[in-house]
Write a protein that binds this DNA or RNA. Structure first.
Length: 510
DNA sequence: CTGGGGACGGGGCCC
DNA sequence: AGGGCCCCGTCCCCA
């Protein structure tokens, strides 16, 4: 009996042990499964979130595109004649803009140019700065709103109008689609404006002055500066990311660099191109680009440039196609071979011009050889009238360009020995490549140096430095006679003329 | 008359 | 030695 009890006890204990073990095992299994389950759950949630975001992005994209289409249609509908914009590199608009360059691009709130820098363009805000818009491809959708925002917060700067007149930077007189919104110009003007989503260039013809001012911008994609309004155009559409519309005239035979340096021009890419057709009034816009370039070398200049060597604008340079023009060939805009593809966004967009700068004394390009980046063929119904075209082409240079030409006199003037680097726009000669690169910012509007305190940006580092005295209040130049202080040395010098009794205006000696 | 930006030339330094 | 880069001075212009 006692044995029986002992046995029973043992069995009981064994049962308990087994039961405990079983429970433990079950618990363990449950825990493991639970963990796995939780993992799967979280994974699913992540996927869910990602998909949802994707969906939202797509919806935004679609909405934006629809809005743009609507805008474009409205513009085309309202526009009567001058310019017909077919479309413009939307692909560029989206993906291409990443670079902060542009000329115009000024990283707001940040001081450096970065390729990945998001947008900012601010020119013209109250601080008279430039608006730069850099649109990151991934966030293209956000571009619109952001631009809008900036526009709202900044007021139009008078500088804009000034720039417009001078054509210095990509500031365009925007031919507003609604004429009622724009004050009637004091004088007769014929304004040809690109107004599609990416208004970057303007051909402005001031008939009264008989000058044709071309405002061209090199948007180093991404970089472009121009006020929002400029970039947005009358429609408020986001500007085309990169390209500036050079007044390209002609190009019956556009040779996109015959050497086929693919990385420069032929990045086909899928980006939708934009065609840019200008339908000039018959008879008044016979433009021709006469490039008196010694083409014996084969193809056109390559503009390498490092146009942005000083800044961080190392990417996305716009292509400037310098084309040979057959004088006998009717003018056509042909951007066919000047297209930029998506792949371009990472490359230089400028034709490498360095070689020609260095070597060709023969190049007497009159030319801002402007190129359209659009792949689609653009043609103008312009006739070919060489002499007339030439004149008109000369008029294409804006006033600053002309002044620059006048000052520099071109490569052929005088100091040809030292000034072997020629500006591709005005043919002015410079002693070294960097000088010409800096100079060309006059034409391109590239301003890589931005002020950290405000939205101003500058083409030259030195000018930025001087500008910052505005914020620091530093006035290192003091008058020894009256103790006045000046931030500019030239201001001091000018002031001291007063003490010297010099008259500002005196009759020149006969 | 001043403030301030745009543009250019020259010189120095470094590679 | 030459080129690239940076800085500075200067002139011009406009508001």
């Amino acid at each position: 009996m006692a044995n029986c009890m002992v046995f029973h006890t043992q069995i009981t204990s064994i049962m308990e042990v087994l039961a405990n073990a079983a429970v433990a095992e079950i618990c363990k299994l449950v825990d493991d499964d639970y963990a796995v389950f939780r993992l799967e759950m979280s994974q699913s949630q992540k996927d869910n979130t990602a998909l949802r975001r994707k969906l939202q992005l797509l919806e935004l994209k679609v909405a934006r595109e629809r809005a743009e289409r609507t805008m474009r249609e409205r513009v085309l509908g309202s526009r009567t004649s001058s310019v017909k914009i077919l479309d413009r590199n939307r692909g560029l608009a989206r993906g291409h803009l990443t670079g902060g360059h542009s000329s115009f691009v000024k990283p707001a709130g940040r001081n450096r140019w970065r390729d990945d820098q998001p947008i900012t363009v601010d020119e013209g805000s109250g601080t008279s700065t430039q608006h730069v818009i850099v649109i990151e491809s991934a966030d293209a959708e956000a571009a619109g709103p952001r631009v809008k925002l900036e526009k709202a917060e900044g007021e139009e700067d008078l500088r804009h109008s000034r720039n417009i007149q001078t054509g210095a930077v990509g500031v365009f007189p925007i031919a507003t689609e609604d004429s009622t919104t724009a004050p009637a110009p004091p004088r007769t003007q014929r304004i040809i404006t690109e107004v599609s989503g990416m208004p970057n260039a303007v051909l402005k013809s001031e008939t009264d002055k008989e000058t044709l001012t071309v405002t061209h911008r090199l948007l180093h994609t991404g970089s472009d500066h121009g006020s929002d309004s400029e970039r947005l155009g009358p429609l408020g559409c986001p500007p085309a990311p990169g390209p500036e519309y050079f007044p390209v005239i002609h190009q019956s035979q556009v040779h996109s660099r015959g050497d086929g340096d693919g990385d420069t021009l032929d990045t086909g890419g899928d980006d939708p191109s934009c065609s840019y057709t200008t339908e000039m009034d018959p008879g008044n816009m016979l433009l021709s680009l006469e490039t008196q370039t010694d083409l014996s070398s084969g193809d056109w200049n390559r503009y390498s440039s490092s146009v942005y060597s000083e800044g961080c604008l190392d990417k996305k340079r716009e292509v400037i196609v310098v084309d040979e023009v057959d004088e006998d060939v009717p003018l056509t805009w042909n951007a066919d071979q000047t297209h930029l593809g998506e792949g371009h966004s990472q490359g230089r967009d400028f034709i490498d011009y360095k070689e020609s700068l260095e070597t060709n004394q023969n190049v007497a390009t009159h030319s801002p050889l402007h190129a359209f980046r659009d792949r689609d063929t653009v043609s103008t119904s312009m006739g070919s009238s060489d002499s007339h075209s030439r004149v008109l082409f000369d008029q294409l240079l804006n006033s600053k360009d002309q002044r620059a030409m006048a000052q520099g006199g071109g490569a052929t003037s005088g100091n040809s020995k030292e000034k072997r680097f020629l500006c591709m726009f005005c043919n002015k000669g410079f002693s070294c490549l960097q000088k010409v690169e800096i100079h060309q910012r006059v034409h391109t509007g590239v301003k890589p140096f931005s002020c950290t305190q405000c939205h101003m940006c500058f083409a030259q580092a030195g000018n930025l430095k001087i500008h910052q005295r505005v914020h620091t209040g530093v006035k290192p130049f003091s008058c020894t006679q009256c103790n006045m202080h000046f931030s500019h040395s030239s201001s001091l010098k000018r002031h001291q003329r007063i003490h010297a009794g010099e008259k500002s205006f005196s009759c020149p000696p006969v």
